[in-house]
Design a protein around this nucleic acid. Sequence first.
RNA 1: GCUCAAGUGGCGGAAUUGGUAGACGCGCUGGAUUCAAAAUCCAGUUUCUUCGGAAGUGUGGGUUCGAUUCCCACCUUGAGUACCA
Length: 940
Amino acid sequence: MRYDFNKIEKKWQDYWAKNETFKAENNSDKPKFYVLDMFPYPSGAGLHVGHPLGYIASDIYARYKRHQGFNVLHPQGYDSFGLPAEQYAIQTGQHPAITTAENIKTYRRQLDQIGFSFDWSREVRTSDPSYYKWTQWIFIQLFNSWYNKDSDKAEAITELEKIFASEGNLNVNAVCDDAIEPFTAEDWIRFDSKKQQELLLQYRLTYLAETEVNWCPALGTVLANDEIVNGVSERGGHPVIRKKMTQWSMRISAYAERLLQGLDTIDWTDSLKESQRNWIGKSVGAAVTFNIVGHNEVIDVFTTRPDTIFGVSFMTLAPEHELVAQITTPEQKAEVDAYVLATAKRSERDRMADVKTISGAFTGAYAEHPFTKEPIPVWIGDYVLAGYGTGAVMSVPCGDQRDYDFAKHFNIPIPNIFEGIDISEEAFADKEKTVIANSDFLNGMNYKKATKRAIYELEQMGQGEGKTNYRLRDAVFSRQRYWGEPFPVYYIDGMPQMIATEHLPIELPEVEKYLPTETGEPPLGNATKWAWCTETNTVVNNDKIDGKAIFPLELNTMPGWAGSSQYFNRYMDPQNDKEIFSKEAINYWQQVDLYIGGSEHATGHLLYSRFWQKFMFDLGLVPHDEYAKKLINQGMILGTSAFIYREEGTQTYLSLGLIEGKKVQPIHVKVKYVIASDELDIEGLKADAEFGEDYADAKFVLENGVYKVGRDVEKMSKSKYNVVNPDDIVSDYGADSLRLYEMFLGPLEQYKPWNTAGITGVHSFLKKLWKLYADDNGLKVNDAEPTKDNLKTLHKTIKKVQEDIENFSFNTSVSTFMIAANELTAQKCTSKAILEPLLVLISPYAPHIAEELWSQLGNNGSIATVPFPEFDASHLVESSKNYPISFNGKMRFTLELPLDMSKEDIEKTVLANEKTQEQLAGRTPKKVIVVPGKIVNIVG
RNA sequence: GCUCAAGUGGCGGAAUUGGUAGACGCGCUGGAUUCAAAAUCCAGUUUCUUCGGAAGUGUGGGUUCGAUUCCCACCUUGAGUACCA
């Protein structure tokens, strides 16, 4: 019997599919466990060996939990809306749905051959109308809700309308647009419908607003901040400019505090929580109002240091601030205008890149200090951002380095309000050591006391209040793309109307071209059948639009994160056509117990999905306001690139050891032409279909008979020729080898390089394992009584593997299996009582070989739900211990002593030993430390 | 700049409440088997060494009988973020 992995793996993959081995039931007496992977975007390139890393880890955990008696939900699906399929459609005219379906097919084939225990009956695709129906449904729920700060949750907009009708908006404490006009109940009733709708829109959790967006002309779309890297688009690297557009926004800012607090209740990695905290950016301080001398307007600022208010020596407004034009004096107008113009010309990118140059202009206007009533000059400067806080700051040069630099540059006075601090060189920003001086009623106070008192005094005067500010901005939810969820929205007289949920889904229309229209409208503007008939409740041709019963539909589509923000709940009941998921399903599965995925989603998907979950919780749809109890970030698998070295200007390639002192160009070569020990397969390279010709005349200079390549660890990417395809690994070594090797590489969370050469280690382990069970003469397992050593090996393996899985330390269990196989081989173990439970231990890691041997041993059915072996400590009890004997903490030799020997006897025996005397060389030990069962340390 | 993570052989890495540093694997060296190669098996493989030993976990200090592990300062690398008032 040979270990024919290709045959075995196919056999069991077919078996699992046919028997629906991993189908999870929504009602079960078993305890539930939900293991989730971040679902993939099915790209055209297919999987490389880095992608399945997290899937293998979660699969091991899911399989382990089944052995532990849990009903495990382990689903998989596709985040299948996205830009690449659309880009491809623009280039080729092929419908993105076709490209996407093909790519999914490839993904599915690749995933299947790795042997994952997914319940494929629950697959979802975000681009499938039966799925995005519910994305549209949630959007409507958000539209129909507002955030009540008093109850601190989302509530129905119909309730808000009732409040407006009975008492106006004066007492409404809501998260809403800034500067909403106050109105009474009488006003509300008098307003026409359009006015009422406009007002309500300012309160809804998703709303239309004129927003400055990151417009990417090349892609014809708006990008989120996290889709822009270094000022260019993440995908494609195209330039991005600022542009004003009417866009849907999500009022995520309403949830800022709850998103922050919720982090303390979930077991996610600290670095991820830290990213989210930074992103939310809570700062506690005060809002302060400064009157402007000779004007009715006021300047509102936000400050985290109200304790330093007596140190204010100027104000700074963002150049874009709306007051700038009004308050600038005629004498200063020319200078201010020039500065505003110069700033507007500089792109966001330039402003960011150039943080050292100090620039600004004096407006000629003066604000009035709320306490001293002294005039304070008002400046503008581009270090103040229009988009953060109020776009204005009270500048305290002695306490803030940027204000300090600005003051120095423009010769503005720098009053010192800190006791015993020298500020002649730099500002003093240490809150802890602050003692306030020269500040009237704040003198002698520390930061905390002074802050409290300053806020109190400001409130008394009506010129300020304590305030908490968040950096988190509302999220723009419109995209000018084709391949995304259409909005369930039509417009009457410019006002958005929701389509009733019973008419969902509103399916994507067909278009001739996937580009924006000539008039600059999104791709859906190309559709000829994209109007809503309110009589038939269907999508009809645009030419029927009459403004009476038939209206235009929304032309934008939803962003990439829409479909991924609730998919984890949809998996619980994916085929439900009546509800997003049934009460029974959500009450049974509750929430995700373990979520594994990449840390690159820290402030995108992982924040937005928490926001939607909290909203769903407020609506009473889900039982938890956090959807994932525990989250682990898998690290990235990096490629090990290979280089050959061409002597400049020649066709001569030098082996790595010969390049010293020579002028050479390193050139990437495909890693598949590198065999073990970094040796280049020259014949293979020359025969390469793509690049072989380039090397027809090449001369390779060898060292010791071989050509050695240079190696470097880089991200896996096509352009670096270091991508390794799992298909090749599976066909050469098998899925079990791939699974084991990915885990064996190192800790799950860590970044680590892939090197195919190393896979022979785990592969020969599997062959060795096989040989424990069978040889050329067939099965050799028998009913022999296990020896003490056999039992010891088995039980220490059970203990270690169980601990490792529970700690997500999968790399160390692979080592443990190797040790077990090595020991049992040495012990010539053939006992079924040992070898049968060993298969259960290994089966989460290498399920195919485990299933095959399990059935060879005469068992019926799958090994998948066989109980995990029980650890019995009695097999590990020892009677003696090989004590390390150390001198001043350094181990010098070991000594076998009985474990029941007393401390005194150990000391005597050790001191009497001749090796001890040798070590001491005549010295008398000062002290002897004996830790029974652990160590002996002799000091002296 | 700030925040977080990580620095251990030629390489990936192990050492779970402080107690034998380098498990396991790759690679390398030697040997067996083979006409030869692959595969397989056996032995060795941190460094230095006067072969008795000695040093050693990024650097420098500290706590301790004993530190890869705890504390302080610093250096390096990676990730995220940034004129955030």
